[in-house]
Amino acid sequence: MNHMESAAGYVRDRCVTGIHGLDEILRGGIPYGSTVLAAGSCGCGKTTLGLEFLVRGAENGEACAHFTATEPSVKLLDNVRQYDFFDMQMVDKGLINVFDMDVLYSWLGLTKATFDLGDIHALIKAITDIVNTIGVTRLVIDSVTTLCYKIQSEQLIRDFLFTLGKKLSTLGCTTLLISEITSEKSGVNMWSSFGVEEAISDGIIVLGDVERMGHLLRFLQVVKMRGTSHSRAKYAVELTSIGVMLTPMLKWGSSS
């Protein structure tokens, strides 16, 4: 029983991720309607985490959506077929809807190199339309970094993320924003490429590598999650064909 629940006598509804170990870390799952940043450097398993998040929802009959900005959906679906946890039928049946951001930009006439305020509102409207019409309860944007590169200013990025998060939350949609960060970042705004994402998000899950005697071991750590207590320990990650698997990292075993 977590401290926050017992104090208020109120149990906040959870989006049970279904990812091995993660729901335990989060004391039941992600609070419904949260916008969570999954931040990490390349190769750390962010995309896999996002996809498994959607698959586990689809297994429960939830409508899920994946917006891909980093790689074309054709390549993404090709790569993800190797995983046993993924079933193409979920895409065919419309339980997991995969959208190419490039195609969405083209349909909305967003052909310029950078987006202005009007373009951002058009994009938010389109995403929330899709969520509302299909009844999406789990959403992944991969990656929000690639998307925000097209937005001109930090203020506009802040507006975009804040407005999008608010609207999706109102629609009861739990969102995972994949964020690409460089592993050398440290100090303030460690988990944001644009300095703002971590402040706006309800939660931050960090994925990265620790070095142990020359080898790189993947780790996951929940740094922040509003609305629930959670473990703040580092967990070793294995990306297996049945999904992401987590176990506490040995305390004495890493140099970072």
Binding site: P72, S73, V74, G94, N97, V98, F99, D100, V103, L104, W107, A126, D129, I130, T133, I134
Partner: peptide, 14 residues
């Protein structure tokens, strides 16, 4: 977008 627009969008890969 209406439902049929969304379905088409989700099936358009290029």
């Amino acid at each position: 977008f209406n439902m049929s627009d969304i379905q088409r969008l989700s099936q358009t890969r290029f």
